[in-house]
Amino acid sequence: MIEFRIPLGAWVDAGVDWILENLAALFDVVKVVFKSSYDGIEWVLLTPSFPIILVALVAIGWLVKNWKFALGTAVGLVLIYGVNQWEAAMESLALVLLASLIAVIISVPLGILAAKSDRISAVVKPLLDFLQTMPAFVYLIPAVALFSVGVVPGVVATILFAMAPGARFTELGIRGVDKEVVEAGQAFGSTPWRILRQIQIPLAMPTIMAGINQVIMLSLSMVVIAGLVGAGGLGGEVVNALQRIDIGLGFEAGISVVILAIYLDRLSASLGRPSRAASMA
């Protein structure tokens, strides 16, 4: 047999070591920012008693969709509370909200740049494919090395994993905007920035929102995995159940993830639906 070994792992090791030595300060800042943001959101979700948050989430469901959805939300949330997973669910929700928010803040502008330039698109696309297809667990290892265990490596791994559809859908949406309408903007002397703001983003909005919906769903699927590195929440419960082969606990935590997922999915999907007037055009 031929002795053949590419030391790829060693190179990545060396790279992460170098980052640890030289950029530790930067990562400390990131850690503090993420941790305090997470604590803030968690505080908002867990400080008020259960009925208050219940009413708030149901009301949002009613406003954004309809009474049926609001009713379903109420039943689901009461079930989560009933199986004693409320606190874990709110921790997970805080993690999903934070990770999705940051993923959207990074990925949507990235998608816009990719739509504007074929060259950027050619770089960004494979990078996103890499991020999304790399097994999610793998992110946890350097994340733990850089941020130690806890919520922050969970958030970071979630952002990396969930970012891709945000950028991809945004690029697709912007590129798909009716060329003639963009030309009209140019023909009347608009700047590229004004065309982006007033024509391309509004017309691409349904597609961008579909991407954001995907970002949220991927974040939620990552939440369980993040439980492995001590991010807590429903993921932590699942990990506990796994270690103790506690089928009952595993199911209770699992069904809570499902309820949260359905709530976030339907909510973000209907936010993306174009308004009445626009859809008739």
Binding site: V181, E183, A184, A187, T191, P202, A277, A278
Partner: peptide, 22 residues
């Protein structure tokens, strides 16, 4: 200068109207 020219001197009507639906 091109934007200025388009604003002040020359405008356009499009085949498929190119209106902003929103």
């Amino acid at each position: 200068a091109l934007r200025k020219l388009r604003q002040q001197k020359i405008s356009m009507v499009f085949q498929h109207f190119a209106l902003m639906p929103h």
